[in-house]
Design a protein around this nucleic acid. Sequence first.
RNA 1: GGGGAUGUAGCUCAAUCGGUUAGAGCGCCGCCCUGUCACGGCGGAGGUUACGGGUUCGAGUCCCGCCAUCCUCGCCA
Length: 593
Amino acid sequence: MADWQRTVTCGALRAEHLGTSVTLNGWVNSRRAYNQQVFLDLRDRYGVTQVVIEADAGSPLFDIADGTGREWCLSVKGEVRRRLPGKENAELATGAVEVVARHLEVLNKCPTPPFEVTEFPGEELAGEDIRLQYRFLDLRRPSLQKALLMRNRLNQTIRSFLDGRSFVEVETPLLGRSTPEGARDYLVPSRVHPGSWYALPQSPQLYKQLLMVSGIDRYYQIARCLRDEDLRADRQPEFTQLDVEMSFVDQDDILKLIEDLAVEVFRSCLGMEVTVPFPRLSYDEAMLRYGSDKPDLRYGLEITDVTDWAGGSGFKVFQEAVAAGHAVRAINATGAAGRFSNTELKPGGKLSEVVTRAGGKGLAWLKVEEGKYTGGIEKFFAAGMLEELGRRLGAKPGDLLLLVADAPDKAAELLGGLRTHLAAQLGLVPADAKTFKPLWVVDFPSFMRDDEEGRWVANHHPFTAPRVADIAKLESDTASVKARAYDLVINGYECGGGSIRIHDPVVQERLFAVLGLPAEQAREKFGFLLDALKMGAPPHGGIALGLDRWAMILSGTANIRDVIAFPKNQRARDLMTGAPAPVDARQLKELGL
RNA sequence: GGGGAUGUAGCUCAAUCGGUUAGAGCGCCGCCCUGUCACGGCGGAGGUUACGGGUUCGAGUCCCGCCAUCCUCGCCA
């Protein structure tokens, strides 16, 4: 062992170590210098230990210590000593003791850092772009290290849980074939086949289905997935999924497995017990009550459909909307009447604009007062109708009733947007990062209409099995076909999604046809899958969990970059390495580009 | 591609209605200090106000353009 190597970490020393001789390795967290004495706080990922260097120690020791700065990497040899009485630091786990340096070696210097690595309470962090540029420094911060450790705990929990249930971890290719549908692919040119391209996987979907055909039975993989689409606070171009697939199962088997896994994850990562089974909500009900297929159930503000009431309300705007087949739906923002001024609510006002900017025609509103309703439109309603509305919405004085009329799907979307906006504005979203409201959204429609291309597209993906009873109407009543698909939603984040797959080659070919993929093309692009389905494919299904989002939720951050060691920025650039970057002409030539 | 926000010292921010030499805290440098721990005291350095135009007697501030960063819609089977 080299002379400078540590014998203990910076988080280890306690009163029981008094008098022992130790060597510490770490980074200078902070420095407090006198002309006869220097205090150094030495930091590693385990903690911080105070080191004292005194001038009377003689030798060059003091001068070396005096010359060090923040973020220098040091080795310190010395004795563990009790701090002077009354000088203990209760903030530090090692605060009862300090190390008196007998020898100090500079392992590496550091110039003045471009931003302060040490986090102080109440102090703003440096801008994210400069922290991403020097990500290796940013990752020295305990809070980011904590997120990486949380992610590690999550991965380890998953592996041990699934291993204990006879799942097999199998790696699938990164270099694959581009398939139609889905996200934009990242492409990799082939050198040996000029003009031909690999695609990086959007998910290991087809490989895992083929593993079922092979009899692997229970598969999982912590798999990197790549999608060349625009980024968001919770979306990166490369991200990680826990990919799971099982044979001889039905929907409930998958949901139960993931619920059991979630219990383990919350237990081992946060020491929390979550209640299972999770609530299940049909897609239709989720859209009706929350205006979203990934509702945040941490707060109320449920949507109520009052179309039948609106038709006879006497308010012309509503009655005409209902006559045109539109829906009228409402949110009772309980107690919020005083939180929004009439100016904000009126056309052109801030809250009204939330609806109009999303393409809505307008926002109708009523403030509930003792024995009356105000808002300017109250005079248009027939006698007793406002009282009837109030009864349906459970209105009490001080409540604010918000109504939107539009085509049913649009009304759902508008009120969903309004609901999340209200929750943020009214401070209804718990700030403690310890409230978790998971649910399953089930019974998704199999298909959505793509108006641009004038054809049906798969809502989930083209391998999702329709409900058995709906298979007969695949072609005749496509819109009403429901899928055996399910999404796991936690606190408004889509944290996972999966389905029972089609294992009947005939059904698969019919589904391709509905999507506008002629048999010839289906054979050319998915021949391997169709062949596999013909050769004794078992019934199977699975799910993929977005592990970055799980890590976000467990770490209590709304920023996906906080849980990825080396993330891309919003323009998909790596500010540290500068990727993507031009390449040598020679490289391009070799690739025939 | 659309909408929104931001860009001033190494970092975080301020600068009133367009008006003097663009300020503060932290950091950095120097000196002083043997019990500090977000040490303290004294002194100092540090600015193309992202960039390019324009309006004006005068622009950090107003206008146009452009770049960057973040949020968002579209997009993400």
